[in-house]
Each structure stands twice: as structure tokens, then as C-alpha cells.
Amino acid sequence: MKVIFLKDVKGKGKKGEIKNVADGYARNFLFKQGLAIEATPANLKALE
């Protein structure tokens, strides 16, 4: 799953980066902790 990092995550990505991560890791950790959001077209446009 492609995500946009909202904060730096050690070993995974830095704020503003778009990367592929495992679906479960994204849903169960990154999204719940507020560290990333899904890289949807609307979210990508908002990032610009």
C-alpha cells in the first residue's frame, strides 16, 4: 500500500515521502499512530 508519511518513522521513511509499505503495517500502526495517510489521488493533490 502506498502511504504518505506525516512524520519521520525510523527505518521506514521521512515526513513528506511516499512509499510502499505492507498493508497491515499501514493500517495497524502508521494510520492509528497518525504517522501516515493513504496515498490516494486526493491526498497526493493536497500534499502539493
Rank of each mutant, 00 (worst) to 15 (best):
M1R: 07
M1K: 08
M1N: 05
M1Y: 08
M1F: 09
M1G: 04
K2T: 13
K2V: 12
K2S: 10
K2L: 14
K2H: 09
K2I: 12
V3K: 00
V3W: 01
I4S: 01
I4E: 01
I4D: 00
I4V: 09
F5H: 01
F5V: 00
F5S: 00
F5Y: 08
F5E: 00
L6Y: 01
L6T: 07
L6G: 01
L6D: 01
K7S: 11
K7A: 12
K7Q: 13
K7I: 11
K7Y: 14
K7V: 15
K7W: 10
D8P: 05
D8H: 09
D8V: 03
D8Y: 08
V9H: 03
V9A: 04
V9S: 02
V9D: 02
V9G: 01
V9K: 01
V9N: 01
K10T: 11
K10L: 13
K10W: 14
K10Y: 14
K10P: 15
G11F: 08
G11R: 06
G11M: 06
G11P: 04
K12L: 15
K12V: 15
K12E: 13
K12T: 13
K12D: 07
K12R: 14
K12F: 15
G13T: 03
G13R: 02
G13E: 02
K14Q: 11
K14G: 06
K14V: 10
K14H: 11
K15L: 08
K15S: 08
K15I: 10
K15Y: 06
K15T: 09
K15G: 04
G16Y: 09
G16N: 07
G16W: 11
G16I: 01
E17A: 05
E17Y: 03
E17D: 11
E17Q: 12
I18K: 02
I18S: 03
I18Q: 04
I18Y: 03
I18H: 02
I18V: 13
K19V: 12
K19N: 05
K19R: 13
K19I: 11
N20A: 13
N20I: 15
N20K: 13
N20T: 15
N20Y: 15
V21K: 00
V21D: 02
V21R: 00
V21G: 00
V21P: 00
V21E: 04
A22R: 13
A22H: 12
A22Y: 11
A22E: 13
A22P: 15
D23L: 15
D23H: 14
G24Y: 14
G24Q: 13
G24H: 14
G24L: 13
G24P: 13
G24T: 13
Y25A: 05
Y25Q: 05
Y25T: 06
Y25S: 05
Y25E: 08
Y25K: 07
A26E: 09
A26P: 01
A26D: 07
A26G: 05
R27I: 14
R27H: 09
R27V: 11
R27F: 10
R27K: 12
N28S: 09
N28L: 12
N28A: 10
N28I: 09
N28E: 12
N28R: 12
F29V: 13
F29T: 08
F29H: 09
F29K: 07
F29Y: 14
F29D: 06
F29Q: 07
L30E: 00
L30V: 00
L30K: 00
F31E: 03
F31P: 00
F31D: 01
K32L: 12
Q33N: 15
Q33D: 05
Q33W: 15
G34H: 07
G34Y: 07
G34S: 07
L35G: 02
L35P: 00
L35K: 04
L35H: 05
A36E: 00
A36W: 01
A36D: 01
A36N: 00
I37N: 02
I37F: 04
I37Q: 06
I37D: 02
I37G: 01
E38N: 04
E38P: 12
E38Y: 06
E38A: 10
E38I: 07
A39F: 09
A39G: 05
A39L: 05
T40A: 03
T40N: 08
T40K: 04
P41Q: 10
P41M: 11
P41W: 10
A42Q: 11
A42T: 10
A42R: 09
A42D: 13
A42I: 09
A42Y: 07
N43F: 06
N43E: 06
N43Y: 06
N43L: 07
N43T: 07
L44S: 04
L44I: 14
L44V: 11
L44A: 05
K45R: 13
K45D: 10
K45N: 11
K45T: 09
K45Q: 13
A46S: 12
A46P: 05
A46R: 12
L47P: 05
L47N: 08
L47R: 07
E48F: 11
E48K: 10
E48R: 11
E48H: 11
E48Q: 14
